[in-house]
């Protein structure tokens, strides 16, 4: 069964582009990644699913029901964590969470304390005194306390320290094992890779591709930056699997996909000053989607 079905959804703000012809489906029990750079249309898509904004054309269904027409009904089974978390400043955390709980039927109040305990959240503090990361925790608890069947997370990890991120991922995984479907939006490829089974990649309002995470992993590019101590030809690093090669005197930068040992051998046979290996930015990976299409 499909939990989310998005069908040729477009949204324009006046003439400005929001999203164009977005279609994808999320199956029940899936953790579905939704990645793209900032401003690509992730939040626009999600806010349409929640009927916070109305589509210009196309439609979206959740649990088989129209998002706009049956919004209130559908939303009783959705937990949503917005990308930017803001709550009523004058309230205490516990009062906000109880207010949030008051919108749902059959709430187990203990769940609030349980989640707050896991996320290490102080319930007695005022919202306005919380750091950004702590507000994010409030967002997580209010999104999960009613045990929703669908959890929509928009950039959930920003502001959380690595330890909290891990706890959060464990929490999400546990919810997923209990049967919740998860739509996980992010611009960080690595965290999507860790959790999700499939991803939709969006750029400039359009879905670029929908991939199995295994495929993406086999496309696992590393970004190399090397300062050489001796002069080599500009083509020295141009072996199979290298892309976007830039050479500037003795400095090189490129993306590499393939057996990392081969590259290490090539580097090892020369003297180098400096070496940086890192995950490429999402934009750099997108370049390949463009190239593939061209």
């Amino acid at each position: 069964m499909n939990v989310i079905e998005i069908d040729h959804l477009s949204k324009y703000y006046g003439k400005a582009r929001g999203i164009i012809d977005v279609s994808f489906t999320v199956k029940e029990g899936e953790i579905y990644g939704f990645i793209g750079p900032n401003g690509a249309g992730k939040s626009t898509t999600i806010r349409t699913l929640l009927a916070l904004i109305y589509p210009s054309s196309g439609n979206a269904r959740i649990f088989g029901k129209d998002c706009i027409k049956e919004g209130p009904n559908i939303r009783s089974d959705i937990g949503y964590l917005p990308s930017e978390v803001f709550y009523y400043d004058n309230m205490k955390v516990i009062d906000l969470l109880k207010y949030s709980a008051s919108f749902y039927k059959n709430i187990d109040q203990n769940r609030i304390y349980e989640l707050a305990d896991i996320m290490d959240l102080d319930l007695k503090r005022k919202i306005e005194d919380l750091s950004y990361g702590n507000k994010k925790k409030v967002g997580i608890v209010q999104g999960l306390l009613h045990r929703p069947r669908l959890i929509i997370l928009d950039e959930p990890t920003s502001g959380l320290d690595p330890l909290m991120q891990q706890k959060f991922f464990d929490l999400i995984t546990a919810e997923n094992e209990h049967g919740a479907t998860i739509l996980f939006s992010s611009h960080i490829l690595s965290e999507v890779q860790k959790l999700c089974s499939r991803v939709a990649i969006i750029k400039e309002g359009r879905i670029m591709s929908i991939e199995d995470i295994k495929t993406l992993r086999s496309n696992n590019y590393k970004k190399f930056k090397i300062d050489m101590d001796e002069t080599v030809s500009d083509d020295y690093f141009n072996i199979d699997g290298v892309a976007n090669l830039y050479a500037d005197q003795n400095s090189f930068s490129f993306l590499f996909k393939g057996d990392i040992n081969k590259m290490i051998d090539i580097i090892h046979s020369k003297k180098i000053n400096n070496l940086i290996v890192e995950e490429p930015a999402l934009e750099e990976i997108f370049m390949h989607y463009y190239e593939k299409e061209a």
């Binding site: 806010r47 009927a51 917005p82 930017e84 803001f86 009523y88 949030s100």
Partner: peptide
């Protein structure tokens, strides 16, 4: 103004 609209309107209320 207080940016809480994404909190309130994402609840199951019309």
């Amino acid at each position: 103004r207080s940016k809480t609209v994404d909190f309130l309107l994402a609840k199951p209320v019309s």
